[in-house]
């Protein structure tokens, strides 16, 4: 009961925060609110028993997305100067949309209904057969990495292409204002370096974040976690370091050639697992053929592809962050 009340509270907060985002014309406020929005969303996912999703939403939605928005804000504008015209068409469109959905979902199964169709068809099969076929405790990992491994491969390529896109859009540094002295450079761009307390405390956190990321990577079979969460966490550690020490030092820690190599290498590793399983006589991404024992093969396959996913996501997030932060120094 208490969870239901808490859930209702969180859901209502979501709407309040969203309205706040809509109403403010200060973009900085809007971005911070959207970070809070994601954090509330993550808490809500946790209540709904989706631990993996909650972790991902917290790291990616509240963490990395906010940092990227802030990076873009620093390079563009601080205030929303939209004129308040023509609001009728959007208002009608979105009300119609909302009306249709509310009308439709009045017949939907209520939250947590054990007799809902979703709990009767495919899902029980995953829950029943995972111990026998794949033998990892976290069923989400089993579905993600093996049963629907092809989707996950596609997802890795989505982040890969995003990284490529950001690099080709922001990659070329324009050689302007190179007359500024190095010191001046640092003062302008690396404000946090001169704030002692955040710098010292923040730096102490970095190794723990990275360590936690590695734990999430290799513990993903047993608890919530996996390559996506781990990659985002490790990247978050590096991004925090770059924020504290300034972009140039961050790029010394993880050079750009390395992070972009990681991106391609991760995607390549994942595809290679699929191609090797084809060469060994199985279907694409059929890990069972990788070893003489099918279950052992599944373990091996999941370990390797999760490593590939982790590599790509780490690389992508760091590369994109660097691309934005370097654009700031002109």
């Amino acid at each position: 009961m208490i969870t239901i009340v808490f859930s209702l509270f969180l859901l209502t907060m979501l709407v309040i925060v969203a309205v706040g985002i809509l109403r403010t014309d200060n973009l900085f406020t809007a971005v911070m609110l959207s970070g809070i929005f994601s954090l509330i969303m993550a808490a809500n996912f946790f209540i709904l028993d989706a631990a993996d999703v909650a972790l991902t939403e917290a790291v990616i939605g509240a963490g990395i997305s906010t940092v990227l928005f802030l990076g873009a804000l620093a390079l563009t504008a601080e205030y929303d100067r939209s004129p308040p015209v023509g609001t009728w068409v959007p208002l009608l469109t979105s009300s119609a949309l909302g009306g249709v959905i509310i009308f439709a979902t009045l017949q939907a199964p209520r939250l947590g209904d054990p007799n809902a169709v979703v709990h009767k068809h495919v899902a029980p099969w995953y829950l029943d057969r995972t111990p026998e076929l794949i033998d990892v405790p976290n069923v989400v990992t089993a579905v993600l990495a093996s049963f629907r491994g092809y989707d996950t491969l596609g997802e890795v390529f989505v982040v890969f292409i995003a990284c490529i896109g950001v690099m080709s859009l922001l990659g070329r540094v324009r050689p302007r204002r190179d007359s500024i002295e190095e010191d001046e450079f640092d003062k302008r761009t690396d404000n946090l370096r001169h704030h002692l307390i955040p710098r010292v405390v923040g730096k102490m956190l970095v190794p723990f974040i990275v360590l936690f990321g590695l734990y999430v990577q290799f513990h993903g079979d047993f608890g919530p976690g996996g390559g996506f969460q781990a990659g985002a966490l490790i990247a978050a550690g590096v991004i925090l370091y770059s924020l504290l020490e300034g972009g140039p030092r961050g790029r010394e820690l993880v050079p750009e050639w390395f992070s972009s190599l990681l991106v391609a290498l991760g995607a390549f590793t994942y595809t290679c697992v699929g191609v090797v399983s084809m060469a060994m006589g199985g279907r694409f991404l059929d890990y069972s053929v990788l070893s003489h024992d099918p279950v052992h093969g599944q373990h091996m396959g999941i370990l390797i592809i999760e490593a590939g996913v982790g590599m790509t996501v780490t690389g992508v997030m760091i590369t994109i962050f660097h691309a934005f932060s370097r654009r700031g120094i002109r």
Binding site: A50, D52, V140, A162, C163, L169
Partner: peptide
């Protein structure tokens, strides 16, 4: 049910990819 969770893990990552690309275009 594990399946929607897997789907949304995918969708979250797709979402951040789109956002990152759109922000780069914005810059």
């Amino acid at each position: 049910n594990p399946l929607p969770q897997v789907l949304i893990l995918t969708a979250i990552v797709v979402g951040i990819s789109t956002t990152a690309l759109a922000l780069a275009v914005t810059v």
